[in-house]
Design a protein around this nucleic acid. Structure first.
Lengths: 103, 103
DNA sequence: TTGAGTAGTCATGTTTTTTTGACTAATTGT
DNA sequence: ACAATTAGTCAAAAAAACATGACTACTCAA
């Protein structure tokens, strides 16, 4: 979806927005890994078994878009990209823990 | 998926199971409505704008399956079905509230 | 200057989810 | 007896999500 659809964009259910942030096959796993430090693309690709470039790219872009992750170009010796949790991303952590505690 | 696939059934991410319970287009809305009392099929269909029988049926079955809702045949004058929150469903409520509080 | 690692894009194909419309079947009100 | 309301099912189509494989472009080390 590149252009916004004017129709039906009324979020009726408030939690739905948050659920949508972590919807899909790979986002929960990516988010969880992000909790323990900066992520790098190829590393993710190796860590998340069964995933693929395209899907990870999409997921990372969406996590960026909703403000949970931040994409940072690291200007260091081998020059790379870090995906870091934003403040919002960190605030989500305790809620996720509670989710996990529910069996 | 009628038969269980032996492969890849390892839930790596614990929160993922819970997220899956409310995944899809209509489940969050159904759950939210269930918080304020018993649900009835045709009423839901009218309330949830843009939905349809088939999708609601599927969503309700899945919410039953994961133990958030219970389907009850009410043996009263006009004989109908009530969908009620289970204990587990009620326990989820505070977590959802927290989710909502995260803007 | 070649080879490996970085982080991707793009077009296409497959699979899953969601929607549509026709239909069923029991109960109740007029 | 007829119509409406209850709560759905079924097959098929459309839409969305996900996967595959080829390709790009930059950096760095040997």
């Amino acid at each position: 979806m590149t252009t916004q659809n004017v129709e039906e964009k009324s979020e009726i259910c408030p939690a739905q927005a948050l659920l949508k942030m972590l919807s899909g096959k790979w986002k929960p796993e990516i988010y969880r890994l992000a909790l323990s430090g900066p992520l790098r693309f190829n590393s993710l690709l190796r860590q998340i078994n069964g995933s693929n470039k395209q899907s990870l790219t999409t997921a990372l872009r969406e996590l960026e878009e909703c403000g949970l992750l931040e994409r940072v170009v690291v200007q260091q010796k081998p020059l790379h990209i870090d995906y870091l949790l934003t403040e919002k991303g960190k605030q989500l952590a305790p809620v996720m823990e509670q989710l996990e505690s529910l069996s």
